[in-house]
Design a protein around this nucleic acid. Sequence first.
DNA 1: TAGAATGTTACAGG
DNA 2: CCCTGTAACATTCT
Length: 260
Amino acid sequence: MPEVPELNIVGITLQKKFKGQKFKRIEILWKKRVKASEEEFNEALQGSTLKSVDRNGKELHLHFDNGNVLGIHMMLTGKMILLPTDLSLRNPIFELTFDNGSGIIVLDGMGQAKPILNPEVPPIPDIMGDDFTEEYLAKVLSKTSIKVKDAIQRQDWIRGIGNAYADEILWHCKISPFSASKNIPQDKVKDLYNSIRTVTRDATEELAKLKTNDDVFVMENNDHRFVHNPKRKTSPEGEPIQSAKMGNTKAYYTESQVQY
DNA sequence: TAGAATGTTACAGG
DNA sequence: CCCTGTAACATTCT
């Protein structure tokens, strides 16, 4: 469910709450998508202390002081709740607890969210990383004729853009989501690059301001989004927001976005 | 109430 | 083998 801005905040919150805590155990409650066994997780993390939490693409990485990493991918509809809790816990995927009794539980009705033991970090630029440059983006777009909205969401080319922020970014730089990637002129590739950086940074800042229920991590918040937001009928400039099915998802955009 | 949902993967066809 | 488009996944929410 979450994209990069949300994951940034969740990662900061996890680190704040659990840094320095000693791992107790992980329980795998729905193993459909989980590759390593419960025993493998527990053996690897046994006796270690949480050192730091960061985000890598659409995963959160919990770094433990014995060198092992617990990755978490929330997929499309995952939820994360602090333990202990009185909330109803339907469709649990896994539970992570620390020696002091604190911890988290990850839920997902679709059974797709998952913990990953020592996740691979592919050599593909993350949208907030130094290696994601305008030149790199230009190279990616020049080699494909698929629609630009699909291209920027390809995690094997650029890591970190999902459906909602793809719409926000393309609206921000006034490029139609239906544009053929290789047809986008150089100056608009520059605008797109700047919008990827700006929209991601601004959304992270907006989310950081939210006052939230302390027990439930915010994985989804429409309010700060300008076009990918079913509650809005018009953009801030007053333009009607259009929507269209694109593949198996929906694109939100306005007429002033130019199709190349 | 049927369809959509901040995602990924397998597979078919060109 | 590379590129592209489509559907499945299984449940909740609107």
